[in-house]
């Protein structure tokens, strides 16, 4: 899909996130909506080379959602990509569902690594990138981390290692929405300066508007075309709760699903019909 189509399709994905969260009656709205344009670009903008029928093939790209609480955003992409029946989205967080509260690689096809406890996804992605290099695979590993997640020390162990082993097949994407459960990142535990941190760790670093498809597509194109022994970091400036006015920039919606009324209101804003 190109920019215009991706923009239009993002409404469908946002709707599916909200509908599944509403059905679950729990889960993380804010971070799912802030990261969905990034995931839309990866899955439907022609960035990821993946085949739902053969996801573990050595030549296919890997995506690791290190900020595992944004699971609904990953699930709707996998569902619309054809990894599983879209009706499963209604089972999110329910007993026996493969759509666990946080992604579970053992239960759901398309989930490359189990995540949820923050920081571990990035380190696993580093391990995968090392493994793919050892196998001489042309595949890339993409890993989305949260800005609150950058408070975990493990993140820096992983960045150091990625640089040491010259993992230019690794693209780390930061969903920089500025909010975490307890409030603003800058109030809870400041992580800035961010770009300088990645650069100091030896990453080729770009900043984009994480809701601008032209910029996102361009950045991923740069990553693919720049193989210079350096890992790649993409700082995506985003808005928590993006696309739903009453959720935007509200940390209170970090871990809150829309009520029935809020869902109707949100779908009206997005201009889409209910249903997946």
């Amino acid at each position: 899909m190109k920019t215009k189509e991706l923009e239009e399709f993002s409404k469908t994905l946002r709707k599916a996130i909200l509908v599944s969260l509403n059905a679950a009656k729990s889960g993380h709205s804010g971070g799912s909506l802030s990261s969905i344009d990034i995931l839309n670009t990866l899955y439907f903008g022609g960035v990821l080379n993946i085949d739902p029928n053969n996801p573990r093939n050595d030549n296919q790209d890997r995506f690791v959602l290190s900020k595992g609480h944004a699971a609904p955003a990953l699930y709707v992409c996998l569902a619309y990509k054809g990894f599983f029946n879209k009706d499963l989205l209604y089972t999110l967080r329910k007993l026996g569902s493969p759509l666990q509260g946080h992604p579970d690689s053992k239960k759901l096809s398309g989930v490359c690594a189990s995540t949820g406890s923050l920081g571990h996804g990035l380190s696993q992605a580093v391990g995968m990138a090392l493994a793919l290099k050892l196998k001489n695979s042309p595949a890339n590993v993409y890993c989305l981390i949260g800005d609150g997640e950058m408070q975990e020390g493990l993140v820096y162990e992983a960045l150091m290692c990625a640089s040491h082993y010259k993992l230019d097949n690794l693209c780390v994407i930061l969903d920089f929405n500025g909010l975490q459960i307890d409030g603003a990142i800058s109030d809870v535990m400041n992580i800035s300066p961010v770009k300088e941190k990645f650069e100091a760790f030896g990453f080729l670093t770009y900043e984009v508007d994480g809701h601008n498809y032209d910029q996102l597509l361009d950045a991923f194109e740069r990553f693919k075309n720049t193989k210079n022994s350096k890992p790649f970091a993409l700082i995506a400036h985003t808005i928590k709760g993006k696309g739903v006015s009453f959720m935007e920039n509200k940390y209170e919606y970090h871990g809150k699903p829309p009520t029935d009324e809020e869902l109707d209101k949100a779908l009206l804003e997005l201009g889409v019909e209910n249903g997946i």
Partner: peptide, 14 residues
């Protein structure tokens, strides 16, 4: 800790 997670990454790749 990083080593253990990297071990997991290698194992996920077979």
């Amino acid at each position: 800790l990083n080593m253990v997670d990297i071990a997991a990454g290698f194992a996920l790749e077979g």
